[in-house]
């Protein structure tokens, strides 16, 4: 797969596509274009599946990365959302297989996926305090433990 193919398919500027190495592409897009971008990537001929969704804490924003796998490449679509209002459109209607990944990120980062019918806790135990998102940087191990009332 080449950069120009992705550019043509997604109709975005070339500077938003970073070629890290052979077979590795990072695509930066806006939140509102996410669904369209994923749908268009799915129409490409070597598309196989969506590997996983990664979320990471980058200061005031939360970055969500969709790893779309092709037989000859891995395209990582990056979307950013603010921490105060972490809402991202869900793609569960396009790819049903992402339901668990979205639930996992909802648990650990508190990102709301708009349109996902079931965002009940998947990984965290019942009775987990509201508003504690263990993988956000602010929630250090000690902070989480003091909130849970346990000792190290």
């Amino acid at each position: 797969m080449r950069r120009s193919e992705i550019r043509k398919q997604l109709r975005i500027r070339a500077r938003n596509i970073i070629v890290q190495r052979d077979r590795r592409f990072f695509v930066n897009i806006e939140k509102k274009d996410l669904k369209r971008a994923i749908r268009r990537l799915m129409q490409m001929k070597n598309y196989t599946h969506l590997s996983t969704i990664t979320a990471l804490d980058v200061g005031s924003m939360i970055e969500v990365i969709y790893h779309v796998a092709f037989t000859d490449a891995l395209v990582s679509v990056k979307v950013q959302t603010s921490k105060d209002e972490p809402i991202i459109p869900s793609i569960v209607d396009l790819i049903p297989g992402v339901a668990l990944y979205e639930r996992e990120i909802h648990d650990l980062f508190g990102v709301e996926f708009e349109g996902n019918p079931d965002l009940s806790p998947l990984l965290l135990p019942d009775g987990w305090p509201e508003g504690v998102y263990p993988l956000r940087k602010w929630w250090s191990v000690d902070r989480v433990l003091s909130k849970l009332g346990g000792k190290r």
């Binding site: 996983t52 990664t54 049903p96 668990l100 990944y101 996992e104």
Partner: peptide
């Protein structure tokens, strides 16, 4: 970030 195969196969 780690994605192990069992999570991917759970919905299947």
């Amino acid at each position: 970030k780690i994605r192990a195969p069992t999570l991917a196969n759970l919905l299947s």
